[in-house]
Amino acid sequence: MNLFRLAGDMTHLFSIIVLLLKIHATKSCSGISLKTQELYVIVFLTRYLDLFTRFVSLYNTVMKIVFIGTSFAIVWYMRYHKVVKQTYNKDEDTFKHYFLLLPCFVLALLLHNEFTTMDVLWTFSLYLEAVAILPQLVLLQQSRNIDNLTGNYVFFLGAYRGLYVLNWIYRYFLQDHRARWIPWISGLVQTALYADFFYYYILSWKKHEKLKLPA
């Protein structure tokens, strides 16, 4: 494992900690898209089907369990916690997330490496992860006030994707010289979706102003 991959995993983990911290400490999930969070549950469940059939390392197993567990915890908080659920911006979280599921699934049926359940679902999880942030970005755009923790959550999530791209570049040139188009292209699409957010995030950070995305 190279440093970019490790840094990517850590920023991913950190983004989840920031989100859970926000929800737990402030008892509020305002500005957070439940739809994006539900998509992440599906992403992790379909990607980590090999959790009990293929052992890679203790690190991998623990991280997979943490990602599945925390994504369920976040959705549970937003749906069922009696205080937190009242802060959910239901009327602004308007993205039709199920419209993302079917195209990603069809694409995975058409474009994959092996036509096996495991491989098609793994490919589906890559396609779905690439676009899962969209409901969250749409919600941010509709929010007049983005609190710091929410902004940081999305920032770290985007940083994780950027670091994974660097990880693939490193692997290709310095490790195995093997082209992996499916993760690469879906990863690049995913990273590109953050570009606009990053631009305004850095701008507001430089000006010491509150983050606001143009409508």
Binding site: H12, R54, S57, N60, W122, Y164, D176, P183
Partner: peptide
Amino acid sequence: DETDSVKDEL
């Protein structure tokens, strides 16, 4: 064919 190591990523 052995499993592609990219699947070891998270």
